[in-house]
């Protein structure tokens, strides 16, 4: 077994599966829990569940990427296609931090990365371009190592932008939004704020206080990714090479 440091918890995973989670750091700490699933996709689901269950951090359901000024967090609204969106953002030049959780220390506000593999459906593959391996069938999922998509960023950083995104099939629109809306959205999508509700509320407000808040509506993940890249001064590696 190999023990991984996930969301501040230590979770043991079978070595033959743990190698698939290469971007998640190892730890020598005694494990808080052990993953029993024997397939990588099932193990990833269970690893996430156990990590949230044992995490001392405030965990919010969100995609998180890094840009030149800090982290960008997208709370996980239903129907958003969060993992696809995060994958598109990484392809667009943002650094991968997590497709599942924004993990925040309630006392310090420090954010911890959770660079787990992304479970992508076959029908999403063509959206993301070349270089990530053969696509699975359209209605099945495959784990993709984040490093195949682009840059992985596990350095501690602050949240500088929060995007309240909604996929509505229309043209891309990005506009500033009220910080209070971000507070509501982050708490509404918190996995474990009930463990310390007031401290969680205060941590969320402190995080939002230092961030810019945007509201975005879009049709496809690459559209939003390109729009956010332009807004925040991020260029994809291919765009940089072409210059």
């Amino acid at each position: 077994m190999i023990t991984l440091r996930v969301l501040g918890a230590a979770v043991a995973v079978r070595a033959d599966i743990a190698y698939r989670f290469a971007d998640i750091p190892r730890t020598d700490a005694p494990p808080d829990a052990e993953v029993l699933a024997d397939s990588p996709p099932a193990a990833l689901t269970e690893l996430t569940r156990l990590a949230v269950e044992h995490s001392p951090l405030l965990c919010v359901h969100a995609g998180v990427v890094s840009g030149p000024e800090g982290l960008l967090a997208i709370p996980g609204e239903s129907g958003l296609g969060k993992t696809t969106l995060v994958a598109a953002l990484v392809r667009a030049g943002f650094g991968y931090v997590s497709d599942e959780a924004l993990a925040v220390d309630r006392a310090t506000g420090q954010v911890s990365a959770f660079a787990r593999p992304l479970a992508l459906r076959g029908d999403v593959w063509t959206l993301l371009g070349d270089g990530i391996g053969p696509a699975p069938s359209p209605d099945s999922e495959q784990l993709v190592a984040p490093s195949l998509l682009g840059r992985v960023d596990t350095d501690d950083a602050q949240v500088r932008d929060i995007v309240l995104a909604r996929r509505d099939g229309g043209p891309l629109r990005v506009e500033t939004a009220a910080r209070g809306d971000a507070v509501r959205a982050l708490l509404a999508h918190a996995f474990n704020h009930y463990r310390a509700p007031e401290a969680s509320f205060r941590a969320v407000v402190a995080l939002v206080r230092d961030a810019r808040v945007w509201r975005a509506t879009y049709a496809d993940a690459p559209d939003l990714a390109a729009g956010l890249g332009e807004l925040l001064g991020v260029q994809s590696a291919s765009a940089t090479e072409a210059r």
Binding site: R179, G180, V183, L187, P197, E198, F201, R202, V205, V208
Partner: peptide
């Protein structure tokens, strides 16, 4: 719980 946020007040 009360927190100021810009000119607004967040209550919880």
């Amino acid at each position: 719980a009360v927190e100021d946020l810009d000119d607004d007040v967040c209550l919880y």
